[in-house]
Amino acid sequence: MIEAAVFAILAVMILVPAVLAVSLKNIFHCALWLVVSLTGVGGMFAMLGSDFLFVAQILVYAGGITVLLLFVVLLSGSPKDWIIKQVNGQWAWSLILAGIFVSLLATLFRQLPEPGPLAETVPVTKALGLILVRDMVLPFEAVSLVLLAALVGAIHFNKRNRV
């Protein structure tokens, strides 16, 4: 009962700020609403018994990516970008496409067999760390390469005289 209530609160906390984040005119407010939505996703990870992902979501998304986004919002654009129309000419088609996609997925989910009773949640960080450096070690190293490439790319694109 209390779990269902928490789930409902988290669902509202994810979806309503997400709608605001894609529809408000002021992109700064959009980024701030994105923080709320991503924190709600972190809470949903905690409900699903994933303690490590809960912390990683708060640290990386709510703490890192959105702060980066806010910096870029402040460094680029002008205040007149915040009062013009924010959607392009194909917004109605996008809305229809997204609606069709979500309703298709919803009909699909209704036919899923409901899994049996759940086991108790246990702390998962140790098992996750073992799986990351033992069974998934190749993707782990690949991701470290990608992060290095992103770092180099960010420096390269921001050099003033090239680009």
Partner: peptide, 29 residues
């Protein structure tokens, strides 16, 4: 809470993000 509930929240969030990625004029949007 059933599995379907989580999947529906995920699908709705994906739909919202899809709309934002297709329809926003601002690159940051």
């Amino acid at each position: 809470v059933s599995l379907t509930g989580y999947l529906l929240v995920g699908a709705a969030l994906f739909g919202i993000g899809l709309f934002g990625a297709l329809a926003r004029r601002n690159i940051m949007g």
